[in-house]
Design a protein around this nucleic acid. Structure first.
Lengths: 191, 191
DNA sequence: GAGAATTTGGAACGATCGTTCAAATGGAAA
DNA sequence: TTTCCATTTGAACGATCGTTCCAAATTCTC
């Protein structure tokens, strides 16, 4: 083998994901992606068939890092009831080097209605957020920190709805008052 | 006056709004808008300076018809507590000739982070939804249908968060179960 | 050093983007 | 009938879109 490629695949995806996250699919051009990743057109097209394939890879990368690992870390470092509140807390906290909101939610609105494959992908990811809430509720009920009369499935779905609303608010205009009301509401939903 | 223009301004805006609502700002081209409205390029540009100005007009039209009049009609035909639930019910019900979700929410995610003027416009509209919830809660408290101990402001903000989440769900993938859980949650938030 | 493999950068493709403009159109006023 | 003028129309603008392709540059193995 003659030599290795210069760039790291993960770094490239991380940067591409960041660009899509910040601007959206349509508003991010291949020129933007070349500039953001530091990888040339030719190299990008040698790995991904087209812009859409690169976006799907970036979306899956987001789901793995900013959804799956993110929730797993929260679940590992918090008792179940606090884990739910910590998820809301983290989503509400502004980050220096991250765009507001959530790439999955942005994509759900921009592409899901018109792209079946991406829509199914996003839906699967959001169901896992719902599962995180449901599992945490059930675990908390076993631990006795949440009343056992609470319907875990319905509450998890309502929490997901509230969580998606929080993502909208934090991307558009994160007024502290409404963010606080949402977090407080999530807390009171757990009894 | 020589002669009248062929098209109705309101019809034109209605159709342009529909196109933006269905596809988003970036994905809707001027060609799409000419086709959707039946009005020629020249005529469009004689009324609106550019695509962005047309979008802003369409957004304001949406706010007037599908937010302001919509909420006013609900408030006029329902007692205050039921009015809140009716708003959730209407947002959850699929419509034949309307795209899913809400143009204001779509715009909040797509454009608010990068367009200050549009961001402020969207924010003002969403605050009026919040005000609708708050006023309805206060009216219901006076009427005795909602417990007077409920904090109207906080509850209205939490309801807005849940409502935005419902808009996301109904645009991306409106599973009946999660829509029902959100509606049920809104109901239980009113005591 | 020689050769091979792979990335790289830039040129260029046709298509479409938002936008402009000048000519064609057709009822109202004279 | 002639004049008028806002509207309509379609062609055309330069720019950028996503994408393709190729020659030059680079760095490994032999």
């Amino acid at each position: 083998m003659p030599w290795e490629k210069k760039y790291s695949d993960a770094d490239m995806l991380e940067r591409a994901m960041h660009a899509f996250w910040a601007r959206g699919y349509e508003a991010t051009s291949m020129r933007d992606l070349v500039e953001a990743t530091g990888v040339n057109r030719g190299s990008l097209y040698s790995v991904y068939a087209d812009k859409r394939a690169l976006f799907i890879a970036a979306l899956k990368y987001y789901d793995r890092v900013h959804r799956d690992r993110f929730l797993a870390r929260i679940a590992a470092t918090n008792p179940p009831k606090q884990a739910i509140l910590a998820a809301f807390e983290a989503a509400a906290a502004p980050s220096k080097d991250q765009p507001g909101g959530c790439l999955l939610v942005n994509t759900a609105l921009e592409l899901s209605p018109h792209d079946e494959e991406i829509g199914a992908l996003v839906d699967g990811c959001l169901r896992q957020v719902e599962a995180f809430f449901r599992d945490a509720i059930k675990a908390a009920q076993k631990a006795g920190t949440i009343h056992s009369g609470l319907d875990a499935q319905n509450t998890a779905q309502a929490l997901l709805g509230l969580f998606l609303g929080l993502r909208v608010v934090t991307r558009a205009n994160p007024r502290p008052a409404i963010v606080a009301s949402i977090k407080s509401q999530a807390e009171s939903m757990l009894g």
